[in-house]
Design a protein around this nucleic acid. Structure first.
Length: 423
RNA sequence: GGAGAGAUGCUCGAGUGGUUGAUGAGGCACGCCUGGAAAGCGUGUGUACCUCUAAAGGGUACCGCGGGUUCGAAUCCCGCUUUCUCCGCCA
């Protein structure tokens, strides 16, 4: 969340930023500022009262030692009065405090100056493109047909076992999944990322830390008996490693990578675009997470984008990078670059990665700070990106590389699959 | 799941009701010493919020978390979380 200090120092910038993001509830900003004033006022009074209380306590001890019981009793009486009047101050302060946080978590992050204006996907800007879109014959099959033809992914079987959106990968399909995970993790390691294997369930505090809660509560699977959430991305557990942590500036940037299964309810998205692997409730993804100083976070962002580009290049997929417009970015992001690959039989661009700088928005929730030479702890910047999400990569690989003899595996991946064709 | 023992600052480790934000040791930083270093000596070493603000200063809170008792709690009481040991179960 934004800090109340930033909001009160830069109200006009905040309102302009929110407008760019398509956020209309400006009243929340004033409400936050008002609650903050209430809180500060109550705390000032309460602190003064507590100071007097502490003084009285000391004097009572002293008086008792000197045997001046009556004077001590007078002081005791006074403490009772103070404590009585403190009750109201305490409840004022507490309710202002929780009310303020309730409001702040409803205010999204502000977009970076370089984020294009716009509300819809059409307003996103193509940053650059690469790879070659293959010529496809009219008989080219979409990946769900190919999956059936070669018996490598069974969607109906997943329905039987769990439900729609939980496919079963078989044989070379399963091995292709495992190959991609290994390929992505090895590349990340070579690029300097520390591999992490995180829990796939998190508590509510972690969900709040990265901003999934309360904003996207209905997008996560919730194990109510234990109040755990299945992670929608490894970003959640990995970033929460750094919750309530003060890092040393010389240890930055932190570079972590993690494979995890990801679980998303995808409530409300049905129809043609979700066929096959296009949108699943459970899928595999390798994530990269970075934590850096505000001075270096945009360098970090560029490195991450460039790194993801090397992956789609090695996989020989046609790709493009979009700079998302204000209205299309996520709640918590300050800037986001989406990677899309072209899936030649569906003739569609599919999003396979989203690389974002959250600036200090997550860090403020997480209380993730760093300390440099100057001494004072400051909020870090957090960044993350998919590198990469598997299902749509698989969809594009299957569709783009289909031949009459079978499906060709890109050279870079063969050491991981152990086969170069799916026949 | 049952029983018992713990949870204190960067780390270790004192502390069972009264100037204890917290003894001590280690670590770290700075200074002295040195040709340089080590050793030695000295000094310093948390976070958040409020107030004030150029800075300094002052105040409040924090000894796993949340309550309670008391004029006063790291210290007493209750609940929770978590770690360890033993038993049970088990991939």
């Amino acid at each position: 969340m934004l800090t109340i200090k930033y909001i009160s120092d830069n109200k006009e910038l905040v309102l302009a930023g929110l407008a760019k993001k398509g956020f209309k509830n400006f009243a929340l900003v004033d409400a936050a500022l008002e609650l903050d004033a209430t809180r500060r006022n109550a705390q000032a009074k309460l602190d003064a009262a507590l100071a007097e209380l502490n003084q009285l306590s000391k004097s009572i001890g002293q008086l008792m030692k000197e045997g001046k019981k009556e004077e001590a009793d007078v002081a005791r009486q006074r403490t009772t009065e103070i404590k009585e009047s403190n009750k109201e101050l305490e409840s004022t302060m507490k309710s202002a405090e929780t009310g303020l946080i309730d409001i702040l978590v409803q205010i999204p992050n502000l977009p970076h100056a370089s984020v294009p204006q716009g509300m819809r996907a059409e307003d996103n800007v193509v940053e650059r493109m690469g790879g070659v879109i293959p010529e496809m014959s009219e008989e080219a099959l979409p990946h769900w047909e190919l999956a059936k033809k070669y018996d490598i992914i069974d969607f109906e079987l997943g329905v039987k076992i769990t439900g729609a959106g939980f496919p079963v990968y078989k044989g070379k399909g399963a091995r292709l999944q495992r190959a991609l995970i290994g390929f992505f993790l090895d590349n990340a390691r070579e690029a300097g990322y520390l591999e992490i294997q995180p829990p796939y369930m998190v508590n509510a505090t972690s969900g709040y830390g990265t901003g999934q809660l309360p904003d996207k509560e209905d997008q996560m699977y919730h194990a109510t008996l234990d109040d755990f959430y299945l992670i929608p991305t490894a970003e959640v557990p990995v970033t929460n490693i750094y919750r309530d942590v003060i890092l040393n500036e010389k240890d930055l940037p932190i570079k972590n990578t993690a494979y995890s299964a990801c679980f998303r309810r995808e409530a409300g998205s049905y129809g043609k675009d979700v066929r096959g692997l296009n949108r699943l409730h459970q899928f595999d993804k390798v994530e990269i997470v970075r934590i850096d100083t505000p001075e270096h976070s945009y360098e970090s962002l560029k490195e991450m984008v460039d790194y993801v580009q090397t992956l789609v290049d090695k996989l020989e997929l046609p790709w493009r990078i979009l700079r998302l417009c204000g209205g299309d970015m996520s709640f918590t992001s300050a800037i986001t670059f989406d990677f899309e690959v072209f899936s030649a039989a569906q003739k569609r661009w599919l999003e396979v990665s989203s690389v974002s700088n959250f600036e200090s928005y997550q860090a403020n929730r997480l209380k993730c700070r760093y300390k440099g030479e100057s001494g004072k702890p400051q909020l870090c910047h957090t960044l993350n990106g998919s590198a990469l999400a598997l299902p749509r990569i698989v969809a594009a690989l299957l569709e783009n590389n289909q031949t009459p003899e079978g499906i060709r595996i890109p050279k870079a991946l063969v050491p991981y699959t152990g086969f170069d064709m799916i026949k």
